[in-house]
Amino acid sequence: MTVAAPFHEAEGEADPAMERWGRLLGGGWIVLLLIGLVLVFGLLRPAQFGSTYNLSMLAVNAAILLVLSVGQTFVIIAAGIDLSVGAVLVFASITSAQVMLHMSGAPGSTYGTTQGGWGVVAAGLAVALLSGAFWGAINGILVAVARIPALIVTLGTFGMALGFAQLLTNGVDVRAVPETLVEGIGSGAVAGIPMLVLIAAAAAAVGAVVLHLTRFGVHVFAVGSDREAARRAGIDVRGRLIAIYTLSGTLAGLAAMMSTARYATTTIGGHALDSLGTISAVVLGGTSLFGGIGSIIGTVVGVFIPIVLLNGFVILGIPPFWQTVATGAVLILAVWIDQLKRRAREHR
């Protein structure tokens, strides 16, 4: 057997220093930013910022957004976008809360908590997950089969899911949910760690394992990197896309139950724009809007940046409106760095 000539190409080498910078900026800088923020706020107001209560509230505030953002990470790595997650959350919380209310035997106008036990909560969870999966599957089918751009599809289902949620309730929130849910999940804790945080951590951990260690995860990256290449390699691109959007919708259903548990009411007006928060968290976390690049751990960091900023500003007495300004600026910076990184790499 002849062995071809050595294939080491001087012309193929990127400047190593450039590459090291790219990697640091691309992967590491946002983590450094978060650590920096925590250090600054922690040093300036150690008693308030560093208190167990404050840290645990930070984590609780991040929990729901994190669950949504895990799904959004899959979608964006697959070169898609899901604007509907917030509205799907609202829809799923309405359907599940109505089912739980009905099963508890309380009238629709009930305020406060109902007597439903864990069976009712489990049924509510099933309804929430199914409602989420339903909208996710619709998104996936329209994107993968009808080949309508994801931005438009999910903008459409955003409006539809929110509209149906309002139609189901005449725009009035369901304000009675099982006490079991509110006490056990909403304000419950295990070993001092809030249940909501545990659920979010579990969702992120499972999401990270699936994304980074399984064949499905490899295919998510492949579809996002080059749909045509994935198709030619024999990957069922349509099936994968439908699964990815369905996953995102299902996680929105889980987040719906978490929200209902936390606030003891549905929140028609409170979550619709969560989609934008998840997209900015995912992008802050180094996931590329062009697809093919990203990580769950990055998304975790990206979720905490605006939350820590807001918390720190409040504690320091800076008008909290500055938080949205700062988050917006960091977001633009993140996308700019992503593009610099790509340009540096695709040097030919």
Binding site: F221, S225, D226, E228, A229, A230, R232, A233, G291, G292
Partner: peptide, 8 residues
């Protein structure tokens, strides 16, 4: 046009 997944 090759058909490689360029980010992998």
């Amino acid at each position: 046009d090759l058909a490689l997944a360029s980010e992998l």
